[in-house]
Nucleic acid binder design. Sequence first.
DNA 1: AAGGAAGTCAACCGCCGTGTA
DNA 2: CTACACGGCGGTTGACTTCCT
Length: 303
Amino acid sequence: MDVKGRNCGGNVQISEEEMDLRRGPWTVEEDFKLINYIATHGEGRWNSLARCAGLKRTGKSCRLRWLNYLRPDVRRGNITLEEQLLILELHSRWGNRWSKIAQHLPGRTDNEIKNYWRTRVQKHAKQLKCDVNSKQFKDTMRYLWMPRLVERIQAAAAATATSTTTSASVTTPTANLGTGQMVLPPLGNNDFGTSSSNYTPENSSTAASSDSFGTQVSPVSDLTTDYYSNIPVNNNPNPDNYFQVGYSDSLISPAANYYNNHGMDFQSMDQHNNPWLDGAEAADNFLNADDYFFLQQQFNFNM
DNA sequence: AAGGAAGTCAACCGCCGTGTA
DNA sequence: CTACACGGCGGTTGACTTCCT
């Protein structure tokens, strides 16, 4: 055996410096070698694996390639609405703990989630001219985007239910999250867990111990028992119903108040520079034209 | 059609924690 | 205890693609 594991046939070990290591994109041949080797020998110490498989790559490079791309259970394709919701929720709790977040999205890698966050979510923050870690932005996620995602999941579930016509009762979307593919965090003292039909940012956050949103929490919890209580039982998502029931005191959502109070200019965001409106049907758009119009109306009403 | 801007994502880098000799 | 190798993780880069003018 070599120092840290397997040795490929008893030959003298060759240092990485002597191996003329390759870098950059992987070739089909390299992928094939790595897949074949792992299929035969399993995963192991990556440095020795790289040598034994005849790959002129570092162990790290092999590990990354396998975990992020070649592994058979890697799930490719667009991030679903359910996954987006889960990412937003988990990120609000754990921050940039991509690996930890990825553990709860089967088949998704930390790299993929990280890329999603940086390219999609941070884009929205940039467009709003606010920091992605700011309270305003986090509250927008909590009180606008996440409810919006829930609505859209609900609508999709309802559409599926009516098309199949086999089920009289509509399953709540979170109970049906990812068609069984979601693995929610274990139910701990402060965790949201299996009470999926009761999912809200309020009860799902870590507010009890360490509220990552800071000390001031918008008063929505007094107005809403849960998000589903604001959604008509006929599963017909309606932003007006949503806000007017949920935020009955002022008809202004907490996030809208934030933008109003912090001088953030919603009205200057026309359809040409607002990423939330462009291609509103795209999977990663949280707000549609109705939301935008509604927010504008609310701002005008209070001016 | 061409060129630049913006978006996407695979891969690399550097740091850190852990295990072992 | 110390040194070293290794794996894991988050941040960053850069090649490639798509969009826009």
